[in-house]
Amino acid sequence: MSEKKIAFVFPGQGSQSVGMLSTLKDEPIVQQTLEEANEVLGFDLAKLIAEGPSAELSLTVNTQPALVTASTAMYRYYLSKGGRRPDVAAGHSLGEYSALVAAGALEFKDAVKLVRFRAEKMQEAVPVGEGTMAAILGLDDDKVKSVCLECAANGVVEAVNFNTPGQVVIAGTVAAVEAAMSKSLEAGAKRAIRLNVSGPFHSSLMKPAAIAMEERLRTVELRSPEIPVLHNVDVRLRSEADDIRGALSAQVSSAVLWADTVREMEKMGCTELYEVGPGAALTGMTKRITKGIAAKALNSKEALEEAASNNQE
């Protein structure tokens, strides 16, 4: 019998919480990871992760490096316990940077600097208060897309996160998103929930940030990944550095095809999926996308050690 195939996925914004590394705070590999991040950023990210305040941790410019740091620390701890590397990796939006670090394609310190820059440029692209996002629950993908087209007269509104069947996130200018929320409910959506975010992320309004990322990525060394990484923009694998750069810059202003990413992992033969990082959002999504993959969140010392013992190198 061939060895089982496992997938690792890394969470994006929204999974952060104060104390998210509390069960691992005394582990040398985790402390080392936090020190590397502090050094790169020039401020005490470790203290912010451990103590908050929550409002400051939730600022995009802090959230993005904090999540890449927490996920990388957890992944390194898993490896230190003898866990084998996954057969395929992916990350939800921001989490794609954690996946590339895990795959050896991107240095951790470079990733931390990149996502801090990414956050700054995403925030600058649209003034706070002008753009927003909303989750539409209970409508299929095509219906949400058509609702967005119908509301185009109100401004920009686009389907930007295809998370699970019946859960699509839209983004755009405030008036257009609110119009699409109302029209979605008229079309039979169960709920339309405005998200607590500071911008219309992954929409075409993020194009200035995508262009800035394209320029910045040219200055960063990228290598061919040692583990296959599925990219958000098109659910494809990439081995060339320039192709990876292109996917990362396009990702800023393109939709996140998450449900298709999980389905692709299943097609590749994966039967187990582990979410490495704080929270359990992707674990919950996986269970709603397919019954063919067993999903588990590795968000504590105990869970990481158990996974490592079950998946020995």
Score class of each variant (00 low, 15 high):
Ile211Phe: 07
Ser146Trp: 08
Ser254Ala: 13
Gln31Leu: 15
Arg245Ile: 10
Tyr78Trp: 08
Val174Trp: 04
Tyr97Thr: 04
Val68Asp: 05
Met133Leu: 08
Ala175Lys: 14
Asp26Met: 11
Leu106Ile: 12
Lys25Ala: 14
Asp142Leu: 13
Phe8Met: 07
Val68Glu: 01
Met133Gln: 03
Asp26Trp: 07
Ala66Gln: 13
Leu282His: 05
Arg76Ser: 08
Glu107Cys: 02
Lys291Pro: 07
Leu230Met: 09
Leu298Pro: 01
Asn163Ile: 05
Glu266Trp: 05
Asp141Phe: 13
Val169Met: 02
Cys148Asn: 05
Lys25Pro: 09
His202Gln: 11
Pro86Ile: 12
Glu150Ala: 11
Asp242Val: 10
Phe108Arg: 02
Ser182Gln: 13
Val174Lys: 13
Asp87Lys: 05
Ala255Val: 08
Lys287Trp: 05
Leu205His: 02
Glu306Val: 03
Gln251Asp: 09
Ile170Gln: 03
Thr132Ser: 10
Cys148Gln: 04
Ile170His: 05
Asn62Val: 07
Leu195Met: 12
Arg245Glu: 09
Val147Glu: 00
Arg223Glu: 06
Lys296Asp: 02
Val235Thr: 12
Ser224Arg: 14
Glu272Phe: 02
Ala46Asn: 08
Met133Lys: 01
Ala90Ile: 09
Asn196Thr: 12
Gly292Phe: 01
Glu130Pro: 07
Glu226His: 12
Val262Leu: 00
Ala294Asn: 13
Ala37Asp: 08
Pro28Cys: 07
Ala209Asn: 00
Ala135Asp: 12
Ala89Asp: 04
Pro11Ile: 06
Glu56Gly: 14
Val169Gly: 00
Thr60Met: 06
Ser300Met: 04
Asn299Ser: 14
Phe108Asn: 01
Glu302Ala: 14
Cys148Val: 07
Ser58Arg: 13
Val177Gly: 02
Asp142Glu: 15
Leu94His: 10
Gln64Lys: 09
Ala250Asn: 13
Gly292Leu: 09
Thr69His: 11
Ser93Asp: 05
Arg85Glu: 13
Val156Asn: 01
Phe43Lys: 13
Arg194Ile: 10
Ala294Gly: 14
Gly284Trp: 05
Gly129Glu: 04
Arg76Ala: 03
Glu214Lys: 15
Gly292Cys: 09
Ile29Tyr: 00
Ala70Val: 15
Leu114Arg: 08
Ser2Arg: 12
Gly12Leu: 01
Val126Pro: 01
Ile211Met: 14
Ser98Gln: 09
Val30Ser: 08
Ile6His: 00
Gly12Arg: 00
Ser146Lys: 15
Val18Lys: 04
Ala70Trp: 00
Glu35Pro: 03
Ala73Tyr: 03
Ala90Leu: 00
Ala134Thr: 03
Gly42Asp: 07
Thr69Leu: 06
Ala307Asp: 04
Gly42Asn: 11
Ala179Gln: 05
Val220Gln: 02
Leu24Asp: 08
Ile170Glu: 03
Val276Gly: 01
Leu273Tyr: 08
Cys148Arg: 03
Thr164Phe: 11
Lys296Leu: 11
Pro53Asn: 14
Glu306Cys: 04
Ala99Leu: 11
Ala175Ser: 15
Arg263Gly: 10
Val229Tyr: 08
Arg118Trp: 00
Gln251Phe: 11
Val157Glu: 01
Val235His: 06
Ser58Glu: 15
